[in-house]
Structures are given as C-alpha cells and as structure tokens.
Simulated assay, not measured.
Amino acid sequence: MYKSFYEYLMTQRNPNSYESVAEFANNAFYDQSFPKQETSFDRLSKYLEENASYLPSMTIFDEAWSMYLASMS
C-alpha cells in the first residue's frame, strides 16, 4: 500500500534539524489544513503555494517530492 505524501513527509521530521526538508516536515505537522491523504503533485503544489507561508521556497517541496517518489520504488 502506498503512503500519502504527508505520511512520508512525517518520516522526515526532526525538531533538532535545520535541514530544509526536515523543517518543512516539522511545519507541515502543525498545519491543521494540510491535505494529509493527498498523493497528487499538482494538488499538493497548489495547496502549498496558496496556504503554506512556512515554506520559503517551492524547491523544498520539489526536493521532498523527489524523495517521496524514490521511497515508493
């Protein structure tokens, strides 16, 4: 069974890390509106662009998405 992007992202949480994907995961954890079951790049990207002021650059999402896809293979 495939994990949602959020489920994968939560494996990257680390409150003691300043690495960009870890900070993204830490902040997404506190985002009550994050689409937790979503697996679509386009829908996630749109949500983050419109709602995630905690994400300083969409390249961080792109990096996390690549890691997510690699974890699925």
Score class of each variant (00 low, 15 high):
34 F>D: 07
58 M>F: 14
2 Y>G: 12
42 D>G: 11
37 Q>V: 11
45 S>P: 06
39 T>F: 02
60 I>W: 05
25 A>I: 04
5 F>I: 05
44 L>P: 05
38 E>H: 01
60 I>M: 01
7 E>W: 03
58 M>A: 09
14 N>R: 05
66 S>Y: 04
4 S>C: 13
67 M>T: 03
46 K>M: 07
47 Y>H: 09
58 M>H: 14
2 Y>W: 13
60 I>F: 00
58 M>D: 11
46 K>C: 03
8 Y>A: 01
48 L>C: 09
38 E>F: 00
17 S>Q: 07
45 S>C: 12
26 N>P: 01
7 E>K: 07
51 N>I: 11
8 Y>C: 00
47 Y>G: 03
15 P>I: 05
41 F>K: 13
50 E>D: 12
11 T>H: 10
12 Q>E: 14
34 F>K: 09
8 Y>K: 01
3 K>H: 12
55 L>Y: 03
39 T>K: 11
49 E>P: 06
5 F>Q: 08
41 F>T: 06
22 A>N: 13
19 E>M: 08
43 R>W: 08
73 S>H: 01
29 F>I: 00
26 N>R: 14
2 Y>P: 02
17 S>F: 00
2 Y>D: 07
13 R>V: 07
53 S>C: 03
28 A>L: 00
7 E>S: 09
21 V>R: 04
64 A>L: 08
23 E>L: 15
29 F>R: 04
50 E>Q: 09
33 S>I: 07
42 D>Y: 13
53 S>W: 13
34 F>M: 14
23 E>A: 07
6 Y>Q: 13
7 E>A: 10
53 S>H: 15
65 W>Y: 07
9 L>K: 04
66 S>T: 12
27 N>F: 14
58 M>W: 06
60 I>A: 02
20 S>A: 15
28 A>S: 08
15 P>L: 10
39 T>C: 12
61 F>C: 03
65 W>A: 02
60 I>C: 00
11 T>I: 09
44 L>T: 06
56 P>D: 01
52 A>Y: 02
33 S>V: 08
49 E>G: 03
37 Q>E: 14
38 E>D: 15
31 D>M: 10
50 E>A: 03
8 Y>N: 02
50 E>N: 08
55 L>W: 03
67 M>R: 07
6 Y>M: 15
10 M>V: 01
35 P>V: 14
47 Y>E: 04
44 L>R: 11
54 Y>D: 09
57 S>A: 00
36 K>W: 06
22 A>I: 04
50 E>K: 12
47 Y>L: 03
15 P>G: 06
73 S>F: 06
